[in-house]
């Protein structure tokens, strides 16, 4: 199955890198949030370093949400999803492929950009490292939970409006543990945040394809 699976991931990545590039848009959005916050709260670097973990985590989650509504909707609207559903891949495999493609095109680039934005917030080295690692672990969970939301709203013309309302409360644990890891690093504590975040991410990535496949099945019948 690896041939069809890989080809689907590569095709989604290719689409993300073109078409106004959802990947580039997410990065720009993330950087803009990081720029606006200091303009709002003031340039006190001590304060900014304290809030950097939370602000950048929230910014990353919002940035990843931007492109989520198109995850299934584009393929649903133009009939590609019918063809993909008839491929040798099961719908669960399709959902996993799309999840991976979304993470490679948004979660991973956002993670790679985060140390640079941490610099703007005066986040010390250990904090930056914790932010980077927590985003690396946590953004797959964002893609996974987001993929469920995307599959639920795939037939909606304006699914992008309702998607954040559905997804964001479910992502509270990711933000809490992710930002918690940064706080712990700043205070030189160990609070197990990264472990909890890993567990949350693992559960989300494991369960998401099943929920998303169920939603896709339901919508193909429509």
């Amino acid at each position: 199955m690896s041939g069809p699976f890989v080809s689907l991931v590569m095709r989604d990545l290719r689409l993300a890198s073109r078409s106004g590039g959802s990947a580039a848009l997410a990065l720009a959005f993330f950087a803009l949030v990081a720029t606006l916050v200091p303009l709002g709260v003031g340039a006190n670097l001590n304060l900014l370093a304290r809030i950097a973990g939370g602000v950048l985590w929230v910014g990353a989650v919002l940035a990843a949400l931007l492109s989520l509504d198109r995850l299934y909707q584009g393929d649903f609207d133009d009939g590609s999803l019918d063809l993909i559903a008839l491929s040798p891949l099961s719908l669960e495999q399709v959902a996993l492929a799309k999840l991976l493609a979304h993470w490679f095109s948004t979660g991973l680039p956002l993670t790679l950009l985060s140390p640079l934005l941490a610099l703007l917030f005066g986040l010390p080295g250990p904090g930056t490292w914790a932010l980077f690692v927590s985003l690396l672990i946590g953004t797959p969970a964002v893609s996974a939970v987001g993929a469920i939301g995307a599959s639920l709203t795939l037939s909606l013309k304006r699914g992008g409006l309702i998607l954040p309302l559905i997804i964001l409360p479910l992502l509270a644990p990711a933000v809490i543990f992710g930002a918690g890891a940064v706080t712990a690093a700043l205070d030189h504590l160990s609070n197990g945040a990264l472990g909890l975040l890993s567990a949350f991410a693992a559960a989300a990535v494991l369960l998401s394809p099943f929920a998303a496949a169920a939603c896709v099945r339901l919508n193909l019948a429509g």
């Binding site: 469920i148 639920l152 559905i166 409360p169 479910l170 509270a172 644990p173 809490i176 543990f177 909890l196 949350f200 559960a203 369960l207 929920a211 169920a214 939603c215 339901l218």
Partner: peptide, 18 residues
């Protein structure tokens, strides 16, 4: 219904994380 079940699975995790 799918959303409700996903939410029900997540709710204890949310409570725990909070």
């Amino acid at each position: 219904a799918i959303l409700a079940l996903v939410g029900a699975v997540n709710l204890p995790i949310i409570k725990f994380s909070v």
